[in-house]
Amino acid sequence: MTSYPNEKLTVKNLRKSFGDNLVLEDVSLNLMENEFVSLIGASGSGKSTIFNIISGLMLPDKGQVIINGQDYTGRTGRVSYMYQKDLLLPWLKVIDNVSLPLVIRGEDKKKAREKAAGYFETFGLDGFEDKYPFQLSGGMRQRAALLRTYLFSSDIMLLDEPFAALDAITRSYMHYWLLRTLKKLNSSVLFITHDIDEAILLSDRIYILSDRPAKIKEEIEIPLSRPRNKEVTTTELFNDIKKHILEIFAN
């Protein structure tokens, strides 16, 4: 296991309800530097609400979001957030879509473009700078969205089922691409999914969420060594972890 010197993000005792509908009962979790942590839960278990609160779009009824030791509850513009939909703006070229967070932050458009262009190769997008999003494949669009996410905030990224809309082959390709790429990026990632295999393959730790109202049911360390490749998914250890998670959900 990697050692994590710094705690990047701490979420303390989140509670949130919409009207009479209690969505989050008591959710606490943390994310260390360079760590990849997944949240698994059934659809509608409030995963996206947790992300909305961490990104500052929503205020919790109770609880705190602490980033690098500072209270960021209800403040936007600190962590980056990627959705299942790529949400690339159809009227902007890929390079302008990707450099959008820099422009919003007030950087010069030309400089923002130059900065973004430097990452196109790493993200498998070189040669597509001046294309429009509709000219890209589904996998490329998600990679462009991820690059935009990364350029917004490289140290903490929230990824909300980023590969759920892709076909199985592209999704699998994206998993290994992400594993390779994250090594170069120095990012801490909080990842939402309901795909157990995906979570085990990518994560250092997994939080299992209960059904509504959401609580953390269990926290699981994934002791699979890195770098991980296709072979990992057929090992006994992988299967044992999967069996264990399936049992948690069955209860």
Binding site: S55, T76, S80, Y81, Y83, K85, L87, L100, I104
Partner: peptide, 14 residues
């Protein structure tokens, strides 16, 4: 306009 797009920009602090 897609509300998610607006939220995305909001999350970026726009």
């Amino acid at each position: 306009v897609d509300l998610d797009m607006i939220n995305l920009l909001k999350s970026m602090g726009a």
